[in-house]
Amino acid sequence: MKIVCRCEDITEEEIIRAIDEYDCETLDELKHILRLGMGHCQGRTCLIIAARILANKKGKRMEEIIPSFRPPDEPVEVGIVGKE
């Protein structure tokens, strides 16, 4: 068993199965189905590994699989950013 997403505890097998079952073409679909890369690190480690799995499965080039990043860059406390 190979863990790909450590925050959300997702394995390589689960990613491969989701690509097949849902006919995924994008990382966004994998995120929505598995919560891949939606944990504390925001996909810093797992998204690039998942992109490679997706590229291999779908015969795409890595450049075609671009993860979408959403701010903030680093997790920030509600009380800090929301200071008066």
């Binding site: 939606m38 944990g39 504390h40 925001q42 959403r70 701010p71 903030p72 997790p75 920030v76 406390e77 509600v78 009380g79 950013v81 929301g82």
Partner: peptide
Amino acid sequence: LGKYAPQLKHIKILRQ
């Protein structure tokens, strides 16, 4: 959010 639920001031925002 901090006004409505002050305890939540201490948790971190991941995404918007």
